[in-house]
Amino acid sequence: MRSVRALGVALLALGWAVAPAAADSPSASPSDDDAAAPTEAGTSFRTATEFDPGQTATANGSAGDYLYWSFPADAGRRPTVRATVKLPDTHAAETWQIDVYDGLRRRQACQYGSQTRTAPADAASVELACTMRTVRAWSEPWADDPLPGTYYVRLTAVGLPTSDLGLPVSTEVRVDVKEIGGAAAVDGALAEPLVPGAAVTSEKDQEDSAVLSSIEPEDGWASGWWSDRWVWTAVGGALAALAGVGGYALTRGSGRPSRP
C-alpha cells in the first residue's frame, strides 16, 4: 500500500509540473497596435504590401482592381485571412473573392470560410474569410502542402458588371494565426523558408526600388520547433517508468510468504 500511495503522489506532482510547461509553449500572439499597419495595397505579387499577423491592413481602390498583400506564416501555425470590402452607396450585385498563395505562388485551398461572396445591390459591405490548412515544416516535393514562408493575399471582384467598374471601394484585411502545437509536428524541416518574392520600398526623394522581401515572423523562422509533443513524450516515458516501479513493488509485496 505504501508503494501505491507513493506512486499516486508522484503522478500528481508530475501533472502539476507538466501543466505550466504545456501552457508556456510558444504561440502567435497578435498585436493590438495597428499604428504601423499599411494603408495601401500592391497591384501584383511583386508589389504586394507586407503586413504582420494581428495587424489590420487597409487600402482604398476601385472595383475591378487586383489588391495584393503578403504576410509570413511559420510551421505549426494555421492562418485565417479575413477581408471586409466597403462598397459605395449605389452599386449592382457584386461578387468578391479572396485568394491565398504561398511563396511559390501556388494557390492554397481553404479549409473553411466564405472565400467568395456576392453582395446584393446597394449592400453596404461584404465580408470574406479563408482558414488555411496548418503550415507544415516539411513536405514531399510533389505535394501542395502549405510550407513556412511568405503568403500572398489577393482580393478582387469577379464577374463585375460593367456599370460598377471603377467605383471607389475601401478594404480591410487581417490575418489571425492559431498555434496548433504538436498535433501538426512532422519529422523534417525546410532548409530555408519559401520567401522568393520581392518587395518595393520607397525612400524620400528616391525612386522605388525592388528588394528581396524581409518579411518574417516576430520570433523568427522555424520558431515552432518546440511543441507540446516533446512534453507529452517525456510524460509518457515518466509514466511508463513509474508504472514499472509500482508494478515491481506490488509483485514483490504479494510474493512474500506470510508470517505465521
Rank of each mutant, 00 (worst) to 15 (best):
G42I: 11
S163L: 13
A37M: 00
A143D: 11
R2K: 12
V153G: 03
A23T: 04
L242N: 06
G159H: 14
A48Y: 10
A63I: 13
S214K: 09
G247V: 06
W232F: 14
V18P: 04
K178S: 07
E172K: 10
V169A: 05
K204P: 00
A124H: 11
S213F: 03
G244C: 06
L104E: 07
P193H: 00
A243N: 10
V231W: 08
I180F: 04
P120E: 03
S114A: 09
D176R: 14
A37P: 03
T171C: 04
H91Y: 09
D33C: 05
A249M: 11
C130R: 02
A238W: 08
P141T: 12
P196G: 04
Q206V: 13
G182Y: 08
D176W: 12
P146L: 01
A191F: 10
W142P: 03
L14R: 05
S209D: 07
A143L: 08
S214D: 03
A157K: 12
G166R: 02
E127I: 14
A198L: 10
R46F: 14
R136D: 04
S214A: 11
P146G: 01
M132N: 11
R259T: 09
A75R: 03
P193F: 01
L11A: 09
T95C: 02
D34H: 13
G253H: 15
S3Q: 15
D74I: 00
A109P: 06
E203T: 11
S258Q: 15
S202Q: 13
G255Y: 15
A13P: 11
P120V: 10
L14T: 09
G54M: 07
A249C: 10
T47M: 06
G166P: 03
A83R: 06
S170R: 08
V186N: 04
Y101R: 08
S62M: 15
P257W: 05
P88K: 07
A19I: 03
T95V: 08
R229E: 03
E40H: 10
A243Y: 12
I98V: 15
L11P: 14
T233E: 05
A10S: 12
F45Q: 01
A249L: 15
G197A: 12
W221R: 00
Q111I: 15
A210S: 14
L147V: 07
A191M: 08
A185D: 05
G244P: 07
A119D: 07
A21N: 03
W16M: 08
V173D: 01
W142L: 12
T134M: 03
E127V: 15
A57M: 01
G246D: 09
E218T: 15
F51A: 00
P161L: 00
L239S: 02
G64P: 08
R78E: 11
A243M: 13
P146S: 00
S254C: 14
S139K: 08
P146A: 01
E172G: 00
G181F: 03
P217C: 05
E179D: 12
L190E: 01
L128S: 01
L7R: 13
P88Q: 04
S114I: 11
A48T: 13
A17H: 01
A22C: 05
D145G: 02
V4H: 01
S62L: 15
